[in-house]
Amino acid sequence: MPSPLDPIGPPSVETAAGRATMKDVADRVGVSRQLVSLVLRDLPGASPTTRQRVREAASELGYYPDTSARTLRGRRSFQLGVVFTMHEPFEVDLVEALLTEAAERGYSLVLGPLTAARPERLVVPQLMGQRIEGLIVLAADGGSSSVSDLPERIPIVQLGGPRSKGPVDDVRVDDEAGIALLVDHLVSLGHTAIAHATGGSGPNARARVEAYEAAMRRSGLLPDVVESAYTEEAGSHAAEVLLTRSELPTAVLAANDRCASGVLLTLVSRGVAVPADISVVGFDDSSVARLPFVQLTTVRHDPVRLASEALDSITARIEDPTRPTVAHRDAPSLVVRRSSGPARAGGASA
């Protein structure tokens, strides 16, 4: 059944008085405005026949419920702000999942994309001006690993991105578990020389380096860290650095899929066979990992599950601001594709 926040029908038509209104719908059906309001908010009080007639009339007229007016009249807005960028496939997947999960909980989202011309200092006040009841933070200016100067008077949840110093709810992928899955997978294929192309100063990058180093030492192997970042260009540069060595490692574990794709495509362009000469693995299972010419082994996290956890956390915080702080770590799963294979014979030693 449609949500009362969903637009109904085709683009709005113009009536004699302008844009279609609830009164126009009521006049078309021959019922009161109050009854139309009940139907469009899915409240009891109208027969099935009347409900059908009202919805058909709203569709024919292109009527859209005025949620902004309802928000201004009410004590609560049931709106949540989201700070994000449109650069990372991971964030786009999360925003899509948040939209669906929020609607199921009776909330709508006010999106605040960060750009070079729209930094946090502009985006956050704009969101606050929309009477949001909580803020979900997926990103910070410049892809930073930390975020500061967040509003103090509303609930906040950090979702998969930067961290703040304050005691706020935090939902993200279990980086340690994900990196361990990748290292263990490569070790099981006979790899002993596994390099890590880092995420630079990006969110979770430090945690992934530490997880990589710990997993390597557990397997009795020496870490090999190559500075990089969460972009294809940075991954390409990391590959060029590796190509200057007298001997390549047998595998590269990149901090995310974008970095991994840059590593992979650069190696292939230089005549290095993947995975026969070197295996390449990523992190996120983003859309780039599934491209036919990439087919990247990676770890997958469920954006729907992460979005659900974040929304459960923030809506509970709205109802009870004194509840204990949440720190949820979601376990990823290994996805094996063509970019990883057995270590080459006579590969580099640890």
Rank of each mutant, 00 (worst) to 15 (best):
S313P: 08
A254S: 11
L291C: 10
E232L: 08
F293C: 06
E319S: 15
L291V: 09
L267A: 05
V252C: 03
V288F: 05
L291P: 03
A260S: 10
S246D: 12
A254C: 10
A234L: 08
L265T: 15
V225R: 03
E232I: 05
G235Y: 08
I278D: 00
T325M: 13
S246K: 12
A316T: 01
L265Y: 01
T250H: 04
G271N: 11
P275K: 05
V304N: 12
T322Y: 12
V280Y: 00
V281E: 04
G282M: 07
Y230K: 08
D224N: 02
V225G: 02
P249C: 09
T266V: 10
T266Q: 06
L296E: 07
D284M: 12
S228V: 03
S236E: 14
R270A: 06
C259K: 01
L242P: 04
R300S: 14
V294F: 01
H301T: 15
R245D: 01
C259H: 03
D302Q: 15
V288G: 01
S286L: 02
V263G: 05
A273N: 03
S286E: 05
H301A: 13
T266W: 03
Y230A: 09
S287K: 07
T266G: 00
A310F: 11
T322L: 14
S308A: 14
E227L: 14
A289L: 02
P292M: 06
N256E: 06
D302L: 08
P303G: 09
Q295K: 08
P303C: 07
T244R: 14
A255I: 15
L248E: 08
V241I: 14
R270F: 09
I318Q: 12
P292I: 04
L296T: 09
R305I: 11
T244D: 10
V280C: 10
D284P: 09
V225N: 01
E247T: 12
V226I: 15
E232P: 01
G282Q: 00
Q295D: 12
E319I: 01
L311G: 04
V280T: 01
L253S: 08
L248W: 02
S287F: 07
L242S: 05
A255L: 05
P223I: 07
V280K: 05
T298I: 10
P292Q: 05
V241P: 00
I318C: 11
V288S: 00
D320L: 04
A289S: 15
A310Q: 13
V299W: 02
A276F: 04
E247F: 00
D312E: 15
R300C: 06
